[in-house]
Amino acid sequence: MKPSHPASDPRQLLEQMLLIRAYEESIVSGSAAGKMPGTCTSVGQEAAAVGVVNALAADDLILTNHRSAGHLLARGADPGRLLAEVMGRRDGYCKGRSGSLHISAKELGVVLTSTIVGAELSMAPGVALSQTMLGRPGIVVCFFGDGAACEGSFHESLNLAALWNLPILYVCENNQWQAFVHRREAMSREHVADWAAAYSIPARTVEGNDVFAVLAAAQAAAAEVRDSRRPYLLETCTYRTRGHLEPDDQGYVDQAELAAWLARDPIAACRNRLLANGSLTPAQAAALADRVSTRIAVAQAFAEASPFPAAEELCRDVYA
């Protein structure tokens, strides 16, 4: 499977977001039913993922983290193989060795996913160095959160990328939460983008729940990286509306803040806008929803039918 072409139709953006939401909700319910392990979802952050990934070219490379479902699905990953991976099955993208938290899919250009917060930032300069030294045109996109931005690797990565002129689009998905700690308790600044200036890296923030705004900002940012062959930082301001790791009762969450962000749900906002401007009819909206639920049902059936890895695979692929 190759990376999917960027969406040319705004309805495709909506459909991708619906797919991501349905996919993650299927893991939440599967986990609650004891059929799957718990996971870290990106529910509420779909626009931030879809907007950026649809601004990329097929030869761009992506590094991501434990909240990667949106990046993978927007890039064209097969939800069946993703769910198989989550369930530890042989047909998963990583043969069941990753689980949900570190799925890489080289064929899609989604390389080197780590759940160690900040590790994606530490590896991104090397991937960009390969692109540069081996004469490859693709840029490198590194997705991380506000939590990772508080790791030393963020600062070391930006410094080196600026110093060595590395074509990296850093995308901080500022979802306001660093595991169980609110971003306000952990960051000396309001925005991660503020820190980029210290490394002479251009940066901007964008409303992360508006998929069209994210897409436009990411297209401009990616074009700048492509032209300058230098780093750029885009901060998408969004909100993690579910807990850190399922199941999570979110007892630590300010309910007023959560309610305010739920009212800005990226999927509802996109759907309402398309309905209001006539790009989408209610019947088409219903058809999109049906198509997505069918895909997830098919994906679940595929994953459940996939066998577990054989015991002989325990020590395979440790060494090259």
Binding site: G126, S130, M133
Partner: peptide, 14 residues
């Protein structure tokens, strides 16, 4: 970052 850069570079062709 030196080691991380080496890891990223090694995985992608250097």
């Amino acid at each position: 970052i030196i080691a991380g850069t080496a890891v990223g570079a090694a995985a992608t062709g250097l």
